[in-house]
Amino acid sequence: MDRLESMSIVVAVVESGSLSAASRRLGMPLATLSRKVAELESHLKTRLLHRTTRQLSLTETGRSYVAACRRILEEIEEAERAATGEYTVPKGDLAVTAPVVFGRLHVVPVVAEFLAQYPEIDIRLVLADRVVHLMEEHVDVAVRIGRLPDSALVATGIGAIRRVVCASPAYLDIHGEPAKPRDLASQQCITFEGLESARAWRFGSGKTEQAVPIHSRLVTNTAEAAIEAAIHGAGLTRVLYYQVADPVRSNALRVVLDTFEPAPLPVSLLHTGQVPLPLKLRAFLDFVTPRLRARIPREFGHLTGT
Rank of each mutant, 00 (worst) to 15 (best):
Y242N: 09
Y242T: 00
Y242R: 11
Y242W: 12
Q243T: 07
Q243W: 03
Q243M: 13
Q243C: 11
V244I: 12
A245S: 12
A245G: 05
A245Y: 10
A245W: 09
D246Y: 10
D246Q: 15
V248R: 07
V248Y: 08
V248K: 09
R249A: 15
R249K: 15
R249P: 09
S250D: 11
S250W: 02
S250G: 10
N251R: 11
N251H: 13
A252P: 05
A252T: 15
A252D: 14
R254M: 08
R254Q: 13
R254V: 15
V255T: 15
V256K: 10
V256S: 04
V256R: 11
V256P: 10
L257M: 10
L257G: 06
L257E: 08
D258E: 14
T259P: 05
F260N: 11
E261A: 15
E261C: 11
E261Q: 14
P262W: 13
A263F: 08
A263Q: 14
P264Q: 08
P264K: 08
P264G: 13
L265A: 06
P266K: 05
P266E: 07
V267I: 09
V267A: 08
S268M: 03
S268V: 08
L269F: 00
L269G: 04
L269V: 00
L269I: 04
L270V: 11
L270S: 03
L270R: 04
H271E: 09
H271R: 10
H271A: 07
T272W: 03
T272H: 07
G273P: 07
Q274K: 09
Q274T: 11
Q274H: 08
Q274Y: 04
Q274D: 12
Q274I: 09
L277R: 13
P278H: 06
L279D: 03
K280E: 08
K280Y: 02
L281A: 01
R282S: 14
R282V: 03
R282Q: 14
R282K: 13
A283L: 01
A283W: 02
F284H: 04
L285F: 01
L285G: 01
L285T: 03
L285Q: 01
D286M: 03
D286K: 02
D286Y: 00
D286H: 05
F287S: 01
F287K: 02
V288H: 05
V288A: 03
T289V: 00
T289L: 00
T289C: 03
R291D: 00
L292C: 06
L292D: 06
L292G: 08
L292H: 07
R293A: 11
R293P: 00
R293I: 02
A294T: 04
R295A: 15
R295L: 13
I296M: 04
I296R: 00
P297Q: 07
E299P: 06
F300E: 03
G301E: 05
G301M: 10
G301P: 09
H302G: 04
L303W: 06
L303P: 12
